[in-house]
Amino acid sequence: MIAKAFEDFLLSHLDNYLIPAEDLAIFIDTHNADHVKLLLMSNGYSRVPVLTKDKKYVGTISISDILSYQAQNQLNDWEVDPTDIREMVNTKIETINEAADLTEIMHKLVDFPFLPVVNDDNVFQGIITRKSILKAVNSLLHDFTNYYDIVPKHDADKD
């Protein structure tokens, strides 16, 4: 459990920690591999969320996911290129519910550079990045004493 003062401070510095879906590059699960490879390479994205047409979260996709699928299925470029990416989607990145608390977010971000955020109906809301949380933690480490006094517990017991 995160100490209440720390949690309050971090949350006050996380006003914009959720990058909303409409501000992100996304792919639809029926996009073909050729289209996705072209966009990933030309825009420099390493991994992008994949949704259904009704905005339900499916997983993520990267060039390495496409190449892995191609190798596992022993396909040539001309065979993999027209294939829908739903066949290649990576589902290893855990999602987080939009109502998740800071403790859960921080535990899951240890293993992933970002977390896809979904609502109770699995509709994609956006992502929380490790970078946004680390920026808030950096503020905590540098600015916390501007707002709070830190008193060792054994000294507080003497009062």
Rank of each mutant, 00 (worst) to 15 (best):
F27L: 07
D120T: 14
Y57M: 07
D159P: 03
K92M: 04
L67H: 05
S46V: 05
Y17R: 11
W78L: 10
K131C: 00
K92H: 06
K135Y: 03
T145W: 11
E22W: 11
L134W: 09
M106D: 06
T103C: 03
N138C: 01
I2N: 01
E22L: 09
E79I: 12
D34T: 03
F124K: 02
D121R: 15
E94L: 09
L67P: 00
H31G: 00
E87K: 15
A156R: 15
D65K: 05
E104G: 06
K56I: 03
Q72L: 05
E98A: 13
M106N: 13
Y57L: 06
M88S: 05
V118H: 11
F114A: 05
K55I: 01
N119M: 03
L39M: 10
I61M: 09
V80D: 02
D54V: 08
L67K: 14
Q74M: 08
V50P: 02
F124M: 04
E98I: 14
I85D: 01
H31M: 04
N43K: 12
I61E: 07
K131Y: 03
K153G: 01
F27P: 00
V58Y: 02
K53H: 00
M1D: 10
N16D: 13
V50M: 05
N138R: 14
I19R: 14
G44M: 04
V123P: 02
N16T: 13
A99Q: 14
K158W: 04
Q72V: 01
E104L: 13
D8T: 03
P113K: 15
D121A: 15
M41H: 08
I19Q: 14
I96V: 14
P116A: 14
L109C: 13
